[in-house]
């Protein structure tokens, strides 16, 4: 697909990029700032439309859906995790998590059951009644993951989910995502700057200036996978903000 942003100066955000993600795959998209990562994610999220090309999610082409059906498609098939959590401050942790289900008008009993299950899974049971302002970043991101998971979507789209977290909380979140991916076979597409975060994935896609740059698959050990990611990043050049020199211990 291709995405051109019209304007005084037309900007080619994505240039003939082709990507296939298997069901149950956990994939990271990396690239320097301005490489088109977020545009790619937005297009997959169906909130942005490619200039040319097509997307198929579970056999459905969201581009062919009417506006309302598109909303319903997002509501039922997609889950979102954002860098700054985007929890609604007015709602408690529990309410934030059930929000997608209430919007869908699900029975209250079902919601209670699901939220109990997920809270246990994400270790949030103790803080269900708290407000977003009263919890830590890690807890907030886990709540956001809970919100993304509660309606059992086909794909979870994560935009820098660890960007605002300390390393401990980031590790928790990534382990949770990995577990979700393995246990319930949920496809996860994650955009990240962080090679450590990327090393949790099955595959890392590198893009630069909107074009495909490289792609590497995970091997047995995360340590070597991490090293290979770093190698590609240094090849990628540009201004990779988080090109760190840390080694995984």
């Amino acid at each position: 697909m291709t995405k051109v942003y019209e304007g005084k100066v037309a900007h080619l955000a994505i240039n003939q990029l082709s990507l296939e993600v298997e069901k149950g795959e956990f994939i990271a998209v990396m690239g320097p700032s301005g490489s088109g990562k977020t545009t790619l994610l937005n297009i997959i999220s169906t909130i942005d439309i490619p200039t040319s090309g097509d997307i198929l999610i579970n056999g459905t082409n969201p581009l062919h859906l009417a506006k309302n059906d598109l909303s319903l498609f997002r509501r039922r098939q997609l889950g979102f995790v954002f860098q700054d959590f985007n929890l609604l401050p007015a709602l408690t942790v529990e309410e934030n998590m059930v929000l997608p289900l209430t919007l869908d008008g699900q029975p209250v009993e079902l919601m209670k059951e699901k939220v109990r299950e997920i809270a246990e899974h994400l270790d949030l049971t103790a803080i269900l009644e708290k407000r977003p302002s009263e919890i830590s970043g890690g807890q907030a991101q886990r709540t956001a993951i809970g919100r993304a998971l509660i309606h059992e979507p086909a794909i979870i789209l994560a935009d820098e989910p660890t960007g605002n977290l300390d390393s401990k909380a980031a590790k928790d979140v990534l382990e949770i995502l990995t577990r979700v991916n393995q246990v319930s076979q949920t496809t996860i597409i994650m955009v990240t700057h962080d090679p450590i975060a990327a090393s949790y994935c099955d595959r890392v896609l590198f893009i630069k200036d909107g074009e495909f740059f490289n792609e590497i698959y995970k091997d047995d050990r995360r340590q070597t996978f991490f090293q290979r990611i770093l190698n590609v990043l240094s090849l990628l050049g540009g201004n990779v903000n988080d090109l760190s020199t840390i080694r995984l211990s």
């Binding site: 909130i47 498609f73 509501r75 954002f82 609604l88 919007l103």
Partner: peptide, 12 residues
């Protein structure tokens, strides 16, 4: 914006 991403239609 968050709500729209989560699949809230315009009418809703």
């Amino acid at each position: 914006d968050v709500l729209r991403r989560m699949g809230v239609t315009d009418q809703e």
